[in-house]
Design a protein around this nucleic acid. Structure first.
Ligand SMILES: [Mn+2]
Ligand SMILES: [Mn+2]
Ligand SMILES: [Mn+2]
Ligand SMILES: [Mn+2]
Lengths: 220, 220
DNA sequence: ATATATTTTTAGACTTGTCTAAATTATAGC
DNA sequence: GCTATAATTTAGACAAGTCTAAAAATATAT
């Protein structure tokens, strides 16, 4: 259907559109794709020709419905394969991204739907990100950043903002994962650092770390 | 490591080498790859530069040790993914080849070894072909063609020579699969056709069909 | 409002893998 | 051994995707 490169661009643009308010800029895409702005210009022209996005010179791009649907199909595959790798092949959550980056390009609707069933129709991937259904519907939960919590509040970890290797390894080392219960003991107002109790142990988390962990509050 | 195209060529050349006695010819590769001879010439020069095969102009090619090892790694992946698709995702044996053709190019030694374990270290793929181990060792069984049997001999189906969609579907329809017990009732000497009992039913198989089914004799 | 800096696009080139058409080498028939 | 045919290689082209360097458009600052 679409080339590997086209699919990677669509996915990148989709993710950028989720964060940004306005049109997605050439440079933003270039940075995310680790490529040059001139390459991006070339590619977005092709994608515009295929009606996957709208493009006005110098004004950035935004995905069409068709482009969004296509991006979501790739993201669905990416996240389902990640679940497979963690649940069935016992990979750790920091090892699966690059593999899913390859597996997401396997072409077969039938395969992805059977995989979905085989995995028990999971709702979230190993990093807490929601898995679009076969129609492209995606659930959005309201979530807070751990860094926004105050002293004595409790929350459950439901995701991570950055899924970089080192960050995920750091969390694992400190026994923080999806579903972990986190009790904020103290919130240092000046630095934004937190003292957090995870199970029996008490951790000191910098503001940067705390602002990369998504949680939902536990009412008490 | 190697491009998708390079991997497909290596695999094709490996399979051709298994059948042929001498060097593999440019045209033989072209036919198998559904491509033009001139494209083959271009590619085999590249593969020769990378020491994956030896090539003398107009004299055909043969894989080096490195080339053979690489081909076997791809074939291992192909067959393991086929087992996954059939055993875990309930695909039929005639549906898995094209998917495995894509999946075999996923780059990760770790993934293929974990997949192997997850599947219980299978020895044969859904078409009866042996799966190379992680060192590239491949078992060769001695097998006969069903067409070589005589009346009153019994045999177990252990593989197929051609794995074309239609052929596999034909076999399934007639309840022949890997492990099926086949009793030759009658062998028509002129046409080479066989009358074969499979379970309770008696089938009439043409010479062409019978010569595409691998079996091992059951001593009686 | 104009000059400067930044962003984006264009022009031209390169690599990979493919093709067609033409030239070359090998093979087979006699 | 010579000739016709078949197999193979070469030459030149093309599409996809990327790059560098230069030009054009936009944004920013005074
Ligand atoms: Mn990808
Ligand atoms: Mn993920
Ligand atoms: Mn393949
Ligand atoms: Mn097979």
């Amino acid at each position: 259907m679409y080339s590997l490169s086209e699919e990677n661009y669509l996915k990148a643009i989709y993710h950028l559109e989720q964060q940004a308010t306005a049109e997605v800029s050439t440079n933003a895409i270039a940075e995310r794709m680790q490529t040059k702005a001139s390459s991006v210009t070339d590619m977005i022209k092709k994608l515009a020709d295929k009606d996957l996005l709208t493009y006005k010179k110098y004004k950035g791009v935004s995905l069409t419905d068709s482009g969004t649907r296509t991006a979501l199909r790739i993201i669905r595959k990416h996240r389902l394969w990640e679940v497979f790798l963690v649940e069935k092949l016992q990979f750790k959550w920091h090892q699966v991204h690059d593999l899913a980056e390859q597996l997401e390009h396997i072409q077969s609707q039938e395969l992805v739907n059977r995989l979905d069933d085989f995995l028990g129709n999971p709702q979230y991937d190993p990093h807490g990100d929601p898995i679009p259904d076969s129609e492209g519907n995606i659930k959005r939960r309201d979530k807070k950043l751990l860094g926004q919590l105050e002293a004595n509040q409790s929350a459950t970890c439901i995701g991570v903002k950055s899924a970089s290797d080192d960050f995920l390894k750091y969390l694992s080392k400190n026994n923080i994962g999806i579903g972990s219960k986190l009790n904020v003991q103290e919130a240092e107002p000046f630095t934004g650092a937190l003292t957090v109790k995870v199970g029996e142990t008490t951790l000191f988390l910098t503001k940067e770390i705390a602002n990369n962990i998504y949680v939902t509050l536990i009412k008490s």
